[in-house]
Amino acid sequence: MAQDPSTIESATGSEQILHGVIAEFETVNDVMHAAKKTRDEGFKHWDVHSPFPIHGIDAAIGIRPTILPWIVLICGLTGMCAGLVLAIGTMATDFDVPGLPGAAAPIHGYTFMISGKPFNSLPAYIPVVFELTILLSAFGAVFGMLLLNRLPKLYNPLLKSVNFRRSTADRFFIEVQARDRRFDQDKTAKFLEGLGAVSVELIED
Protein backbone atom coordinates (compact mmCIF):
# COMPACT_ATOMS: atom_id res chain seq x y z
CA MET A 1 0.00 0.00 0.00
CA ALA A 2 3.00 2.28 0.18
CA GLN A 3 2.41 5.25 -2.01
CA ASP A 4 4.96 7.11 -3.98
CA PRO A 5 4.84 10.75 -2.86
CA SER A 6 4.89 11.81 -6.48
CA THR A 7 1.47 10.27 -7.03
CA ILE A 8 -0.06 12.00 -4.04
CA GLU A 9 -0.95 15.15 -5.86
CA SER A 10 -2.92 13.42 -8.54
CA ALA A 11 -4.83 11.48 -5.92
CA THR A 12 -5.94 14.65 -4.21
CA GLY A 13 -9.39 15.74 -5.23
CA SER A 14 -9.57 19.49 -5.85
CA GLU A 15 -12.80 19.78 -3.82
CA GLN A 16 -11.31 18.12 -0.75
CA ILE A 17 -9.74 19.93 2.17
CA LEU A 18 -6.41 18.49 3.16
CA HIS A 19 -6.14 17.20 6.75
CA GLY A 20 -2.48 16.31 6.77
CA VAL A 21 0.13 13.68 6.11
CA ILE A 22 0.74 10.45 7.94
CA ALA A 23 3.99 8.52 7.83
CA GLU A 24 4.25 4.88 8.83
CA PHE A 25 7.19 3.47 10.82
CA GLU A 26 8.08 -0.10 11.64
CA THR A 27 9.83 0.14 14.99
CA VAL A 28 9.81 2.18 18.18
CA ASN A 29 13.38 3.29 17.52
CA ASP A 30 12.45 4.55 14.04
CA VAL A 31 9.46 6.50 15.25
CA MET A 32 11.39 7.94 18.24
CA HIS A 33 14.14 9.10 15.93
CA ALA A 34 11.63 10.55 13.45
CA ALA A 35 9.66 12.26 16.22
CA LYS A 36 12.78 14.05 17.47
CA LYS A 37 13.59 15.22 13.94
CA THR A 38 10.02 16.40 13.38
CA ARG A 39 10.09 18.26 16.70
CA ASP A 40 13.38 19.92 15.78
CA GLU A 41 11.95 20.90 12.38
CA GLY A 42 9.59 23.22 14.32
CA PHE A 43 6.22 21.65 13.60
CA LYS A 44 3.49 22.45 16.12
CA HIS A 45 0.38 20.58 14.98
CA TRP A 46 1.52 17.01 14.79
CA ASP A 47 1.34 13.81 16.80
CA VAL A 48 2.66 10.27 17.16
CA HIS A 49 0.26 7.30 17.11
CA SER A 50 1.39 4.07 18.73
CA PRO A 51 -0.28 0.82 19.78
CA PHE A 52 1.21 1.20 23.29
CA PRO A 53 2.75 3.90 25.49
CA ILE A 54 6.40 4.61 24.65
CA HIS A 55 8.70 5.74 27.44
CA GLY A 56 10.29 9.06 26.62
CA ILE A 57 7.96 9.87 23.73
CA ASP A 58 6.75 13.02 25.54
CA ALA A 59 10.22 14.51 25.37
CA ALA A 60 10.70 13.25 21.79
CA ILE A 61 7.52 15.05 20.70
CA GLY A 62 8.38 18.06 22.85
CA ILE A 63 5.06 18.10 24.65
CA ARG A 64 4.80 21.06 27.00
CA PRO A 65 3.67 20.34 30.59
CA THR A 66 -0.09 20.15 30.84
CA ILE A 67 -2.13 22.72 32.72
CA LEU A 68 -4.37 19.93 34.03
CA PRO A 69 -2.89 20.04 37.59
CA TRP A 70 -3.92 23.69 37.89
CA ILE A 71 -7.44 22.86 36.74
CA VAL A 72 -7.60 20.10 39.37
CA LEU A 73 -6.25 22.42 42.05
CA ILE A 74 -8.81 25.10 41.28
CA CYS A 75 -11.63 22.53 41.21
CA GLY A 76 -10.43 21.06 44.51
CA LEU A 77 -10.28 24.43 46.21
CA THR A 78 -13.74 25.24 44.84
CA GLY A 79 -15.02 21.98 46.33
CA MET A 80 -13.38 22.79 49.65
CA CYS A 81 -14.99 26.23 49.80
CA ALA A 82 -18.34 24.84 48.66
CA GLY A 83 -18.17 22.24 51.43
CA LEU A 84 -17.43 24.85 54.05
CA VAL A 85 -20.21 27.13 52.83
CA LEU A 86 -22.64 24.22 52.68
CA ALA A 87 -21.82 22.92 56.14
CA ILE A 88 -21.56 26.23 57.95
CA GLY A 89 -24.42 27.76 55.96
CA THR A 90 -26.90 25.00 56.66
CA MET A 91 -25.83 24.28 60.22
CA ALA A 92 -24.56 27.37 61.90
CA THR A 93 -25.73 30.59 60.24
CA ASP A 94 -27.93 32.95 62.14
CA PHE A 95 -28.15 36.49 60.81
CA ASP A 96 -30.59 38.91 59.23
CA VAL A 97 -30.18 40.25 55.74
CA PRO A 98 -30.08 44.00 56.17
CA GLY A 99 -31.57 46.51 53.78
CA LEU A 100 -34.61 44.47 52.78
CA PRO A 101 -38.04 46.15 53.00
CA GLY A 102 -40.21 45.37 55.98
CA ALA A 103 -38.94 42.89 58.51
CA ALA A 104 -35.35 41.88 57.86
CA ALA A 105 -35.11 38.51 56.12
CA PRO A 106 -33.62 36.09 58.59
CA ILE A 107 -31.10 33.49 57.41
CA HIS A 108 -31.06 30.64 59.85
CA GLY A 109 -29.16 27.38 59.76
CA TYR A 110 -30.70 24.26 61.25
CA THR A 111 -28.63 24.73 64.41
CA PHE A 112 -29.21 21.14 65.46
CA MET A 113 -27.81 20.30 68.85
CA ILE A 114 -25.69 17.20 68.27
CA SER A 115 -24.17 15.62 71.36
CA GLY A 116 -23.64 18.98 72.98
CA LYS A 117 -21.22 20.28 70.36
CA PRO A 118 -21.13 23.93 69.34
CA PHE A 119 -23.29 24.59 66.28
CA ASN A 120 -20.23 25.63 64.34
CA SER A 121 -17.98 22.59 64.79
CA LEU A 122 -15.27 22.30 62.19
CA PRO A 123 -14.31 18.67 63.00
CA ALA A 124 -17.83 17.56 62.13
CA TYR A 125 -17.65 19.41 58.80
CA ILE A 126 -14.28 18.04 57.70
CA PRO A 127 -15.70 14.83 56.14
CA VAL A 128 -18.12 16.87 54.01
CA VAL A 129 -15.44 19.36 53.06
CA PHE A 130 -12.98 16.55 52.32
CA GLU A 131 -15.40 14.57 50.16
CA LEU A 132 -16.45 17.61 48.16
CA THR A 133 -12.80 18.53 47.62
CA ILE A 134 -12.10 15.03 46.32
CA LEU A 135 -15.27 14.92 44.19
CA LEU A 136 -14.61 18.20 42.43
CA SER A 137 -10.90 17.40 42.02
CA ALA A 138 -11.84 14.11 40.37
CA PHE A 139 -14.37 15.85 38.12
CA GLY A 140 -11.74 18.44 37.26
CA ALA A 141 -9.20 15.72 36.42
CA VAL A 142 -11.54 13.58 34.28
CA PHE A 143 -13.51 16.29 32.49
CA GLY A 144 -10.50 18.58 32.25
CA MET A 145 -8.55 15.78 30.57
CA LEU A 146 -11.41 15.15 28.13
CA LEU A 147 -11.71 18.85 27.39
CA LEU A 148 -7.97 19.37 26.84
CA ASN A 149 -7.87 16.33 24.53
CA ARG A 150 -11.02 17.52 22.73
CA LEU A 151 -12.73 14.27 23.54
CA PRO A 152 -15.08 12.65 22.77
CA LYS A 153 -14.19 12.95 19.11
CA LEU A 154 -16.80 11.34 16.92
CA TYR A 155 -14.94 11.77 13.66
CA ASN A 156 -11.27 11.61 12.83
CA PRO A 157 -10.15 11.77 9.20
CA LEU A 158 -7.19 9.48 9.97
CA LEU A 159 -9.60 6.56 10.30
CA LYS A 160 -10.25 6.74 6.56
CA SER A 161 -6.79 5.38 5.95
CA VAL A 162 -6.54 1.61 5.74
CA ASN A 163 -2.84 1.73 6.62
CA PHE A 164 -3.57 3.68 9.75
CA ARG A 165 -5.56 0.78 11.22
CA ARG A 166 -2.25 -0.87 12.03
CA SER A 167 -1.58 1.91 14.55
CA THR A 168 -3.58 -0.19 17.01
CA ALA A 169 -1.60 -3.32 16.22
CA ASP A 170 2.03 -3.20 15.11
CA ARG A 171 2.86 0.07 13.34
CA PHE A 172 3.80 3.55 14.47
CA PHE A 173 2.60 6.71 12.76
CA ILE A 174 3.57 10.33 12.68
CA GLU A 175 0.80 12.68 11.68
CA VAL A 176 1.52 16.23 10.57
CA GLN A 177 -1.57 18.36 10.16
CA ALA A 178 -2.13 20.72 7.25
CA ARG A 179 -3.04 23.59 9.59
CA ASP A 180 0.58 23.73 10.77
CA ARG A 181 2.24 26.87 9.48
CA ARG A 182 5.29 24.96 8.31
CA PHE A 183 3.19 22.39 6.46
CA ASP A 184 3.81 22.03 2.78
CA GLN A 185 2.20 19.09 1.02
CA ASP A 186 5.24 18.01 -0.95
CA LYS A 187 8.03 19.11 1.28
CA THR A 188 6.52 17.59 4.43
CA ALA A 189 5.83 14.31 2.70
CA LYS A 190 9.39 14.20 1.38
CA PHE A 191 10.73 15.15 4.79
CA LEU A 192 8.85 12.30 6.50
CA GLU A 193 9.94 9.83 3.89
CA GLY A 194 13.51 10.90 4.48
CA LEU A 195 13.12 9.93 8.13
CA GLY A 196 12.71 6.28 7.22
CA ALA A 197 8.95 6.00 6.82
CA VAL A 198 7.82 2.82 5.08
CA SER A 199 4.84 4.68 3.65
CA VAL A 200 3.62 8.26 3.45
CA GLU A 201 -0.01 9.05 2.84
CA LEU A 202 -2.03 12.19 2.30
CA ILE A 203 -5.22 12.37 4.35
CA GLU A 204 -8.25 14.38 3.30
CA ASP A 205 -10.63 15.85 5.76
Binding site: S115, G116, K117, P123, A124, I126, P127
Partner: peptide, 12 residues
Protein backbone atom coordinates in the same frame (compact mmCIF):
# COMPACT_ATOMS: atom_id res chain seq x y z
CA UNK B 1 -5.07 10.96 62.81
CA UNK B 2 -8.15 13.00 62.02
CA UNK B 3 -10.44 9.95 61.91
CA UNK B 4 -9.17 8.85 65.31
CA UNK B 5 -9.65 12.33 66.71
CA UNK B 6 -13.11 12.81 65.25
CA UNK B 7 -14.54 9.57 66.66
CA UNK B 8 -13.27 10.38 70.15
CA UNK B 9 -14.34 14.02 69.87
CA UNK B 10 -17.85 13.05 68.77
CA UNK B 11 -18.37 10.39 71.41
CA UNK B 12 -16.89 12.69 74.05
Amino acid sequence: AFSQFMLIWYAN
